[in-house]
């Protein structure tokens, strides 16, 4: 589904990411862990063609991301609040994304209904613009918006940060459900090893821009990762 070849990104001569080869299979639930500055967000930004690779290329769904735009129809992502439109109400935002992804109002409404529990009654009909929401509630809006239009690739950067414990639990349920679907590839990055291990069936650890671990999740994975990061 996604291939990175000879990928590297350098700023002013300092290499912040260097991945010689990485292949993510269709249907995989892929977890990216690492400390601050390890290159997680850089990798996702490259994957979404928001920054230009210094060398190498990324292929998503058969299209080189920096040469074609066709991958956009099957890919949905939420990296940070710059993926939200602050002056819209959540409903308007969802319908806007729906319009862009060829979904009518009824489709979007059905999806929102399904995730009513996740919103915890704080999002819909709240008479507030997204810019006036708390960080956690903004995140809820952004995450659910990525599910609109049945995307095949879903990319979430630090989805657990800023969420309250109950919502974290509910989010794990949502991601696991997506992971169970063989048509959907989920990419999640996180600082939190426990959360990542729970929702991913493959985990890659980055350190200073390089892949230092690439493991299929098993009972021992958490322990292995904890040992690695406990320096």
């Amino acid at each position: 589904m996604i291939q990175a070849k000879n990928l590297s990104k350098a700023y002013n001569g300092t290499t912040v990411l260097k991945i010689d080869h990485l292949e993510i299979q269709k249907g995989e639930s892929f977890g990216l862990v690492g400390n601050n500055g390890a290159g997680k967000t850089t990798f996702f930004s490259l994957l979404l063609d928001l920054i230009q690779p210094t060398t190498g290329e990324i292929i998503n769904s058969g299209f080189r991301v920096d040469q074609s735009e066709n991958w956009k129809t099957v890919t949905a992502s939420f990296l940070d609040e710059s993926f939200l439109i602050g002056y819209l109400t959540p409903e308007e935002y969802f319908y806007f994304i729906g319009d862009l992804r060829g979904q009518n109002k009824a489709d979007v409404d059905a999806l929102l209904k399904k995730h009513e529990e996740f919103f915890n009654g704080e999002i819909l009909n709240s008479k507030k613009y997204i810019r006036d929401f708390s960080k956690g509630n903004q995140k809820k809006v952004g995450i659910i918006a990525t599910l609109i239009g049945n995307p095949e690739v879903i990319i979430l950067d630090e989805p657990f940060a800023n969420l309250d414990p109950t919502t974290q639990f509910r989010l794990k349920k949502i991601i696991k459900e997506l992971a169970d679907n063989p048509e959907i590839t989920v990419l999640v990055s996180s600082h939190d090893l426990l959360h990542t291990v729970e929702v991913s069936n493959r985990i890659v650890a980055l350190q200073k821009g390089e892949i230092v671990k690439d493991i299929q999740t098993s009972a021992e994975t958490l322990e292995e990762l904890e040992r690695f990061f406990a320096v």
Binding site: K72, L79, D80, G86
Partner: peptide, 12 residues
Amino acid sequence: SAYYPLMMTQNI
């Protein structure tokens, strides 16, 4: 500009 990355990752 505030949500340009969104615009650039959607099929616009």
